[in-house]
Amino acid sequence: MSAVAPIEPTPGRSERELKREEAAIARKYMGRVPWEMVAWGLGNFVLWLSIWPLTFAGILPLWAAFVLSTVSITLCYLPSHEAQHSIIATEGSPLRWLNELVGHVSTIPLLLPYRIAWITHKQHHANANDPELDPDHANQGDTWWQAAWNGIQARQFGAGHGYKNALARSDDPNLGKALREGTILSLSYYAILVTLAWSGHAIEAALIWWLPRHIAMTYIQVFLSWAPHHPMEETGRYRDTRAWRSPVGTILSLGMEYHIVHHLFPRIPLFQTGPAYHEMRALLDERGCRNDRPD
């Protein structure tokens, strides 16, 4: 890892002016309620719940339930991510309850409690690419498949993984509540799996929740942690994240091609990071940001 020297402002424009221009562009994309993320988060959760009765009633074949559930669980993190950053509604605003509802509900299938996600995600933003302090750094790898394997290894129960360490370091006032919620969610998950298994539905439990969750976790780690920060060697506001062109496109890479905008201005909604990137592209280049996009 190499720390990068601060970017020198170009002649004629001061650091302050560059920051002001960046912020002026960013402000245009902040402030609205991203209703599409609210619908995505809550709708996706209802869709995932509906897979269970539809499968048990014989309406949905098990193979289709497996595919749908894998897609649904893969999609469940991003709405919670918007809520973690209070993008849906800030603290004290009338729609704050909706922000918290989306945050708590959307990641239940992924078994990632909202408060734990936020406590650890804050540390990722503050320490991106730091091998010791960035909880997502375990996903480093030269290739996506190495990153996927490293991510799987880091999730093993005996691994001293980044999330566990990040929680151990945290002095967040909500840590106790977050850990209690995590314990309840995990115990509920295992209780449901075991109950289903011993009542003759082990294959359904495995193919609707257990296996899809593992596949989704790996997919999310590759596209949200590894790809936008690859090769995870530099730190600093303008160098720890990149703009990149995904070989599988923007949708399949979960909108992460413009992740640099998110790290610079975390309150910009996901759907606005693309337009914001294109508008501030020249400024980012002037800053010496990491840009691996050909356009």
Binding site: F157, G158, L167, A168, R169, S170, L175, G176, L179, Y190, L193, V194, A197, W198, G200, A202, I203, A205, A206, W210
Partner: peptide
């Protein structure tokens, strides 16, 4: 609040419990 690490015994018992309580019926039903 200080973060509490789970005990090594609990950590070790988890996989054995999971193997018997979930993997066993899964293997049988498969």
């Amino acid at each position: 609040m200080r973060f509490m690490r789970s005990s090594p015994l609990l950590t070790a018992a988890g996989p054995v419990l999971f193997g018997g309580a979930f993997l066993a019926p899964l293997i049988a039903q498969s």
